[in-house]
Simulated scan of single mutants.
Amino acid sequence: MFTIKARDLAAILDRVAPHRFRADDDTGDLDPLILDCTPGHLHAVACSDRTLAVARTAVTGDVWTAPVDYDDAAALRGWLESSETVTVEHVTSGGHQQLRFTEGPAQITVPAASHVGRLPWRALLRLVLDARDHPLAVGRPVQLNADDLALWGNAGEDGEAIEFRSLGPVGTLVTAGPDFLGLQTPHTWDGPTPGEGWSSSLRTRRFLFAGTFLEVGARYADCTRTVWVVSARPGRGEEPTLVCADYAAVTLPISQVLAVGKFLIRLPD
Rank of each mutant, 00 (worst) to 15 (best):
T212H: 05
Q256N: 15
A221C: 03
L252Y: 04
V250W: 08
Y220Q: 04
G217T: 00
G182M: 02
Y220E: 08
V243I: 00
P178R: 08
T241S: 06
P169A: 01
T226A: 04
V260G: 06
L264R: 00
R206G: 10
T224Q: 13
V230K: 00
G159L: 09
V257T: 04
P253S: 00
D222P: 14
D158W: 14
I265M: 09
L202S: 05
G197P: 09
S201C: 12
G159E: 13
P253H: 01
F164T: 06
T226D: 13
G211Y: 05
I162Q: 10
L202D: 04
D158G: 09
T251F: 03
D190V: 13
D179Q: 11
L181N: 02
G195P: 12
G177H: 14
I265N: 10
S201G: 12
H187T: 11
T212Y: 02
E239Y: 12
T172M: 03
Q184N: 12
L208V: 13
H187W: 15
T224W: 07
G195W: 06
T175N: 08
S166F: 07
G168P: 03
A155K: 07
Q256S: 15
P194M: 10
I265E: 15
G177S: 12
F209M: 04
E157T: 06
L181M: 01
T212L: 03
V260S: 11
C223N: 15
L242G: 00
D222A: 07
R203G: 02
R225Q: 14
V250A: 03
I162E: 11
G191V: 09
E239V: 11
V260M: 09
A155W: 10
P253W: 02
R225H: 13
W198Y: 08
L208N: 12
W228P: 02
P178K: 05
S231R: 10
A249V: 13
T188E: 11
Q256L: 15
L181W: 08
P234V: 01
T188G: 04
T204C: 02
S255L: 10
G235H: 12
I254M: 02
T172D: 04
T226E: 12
R205H: 06
R219L: 06
S166Q: 07
T172R: 03
A210L: 04
T251V: 14
T172S: 01
L173P: 13
E238H: 08
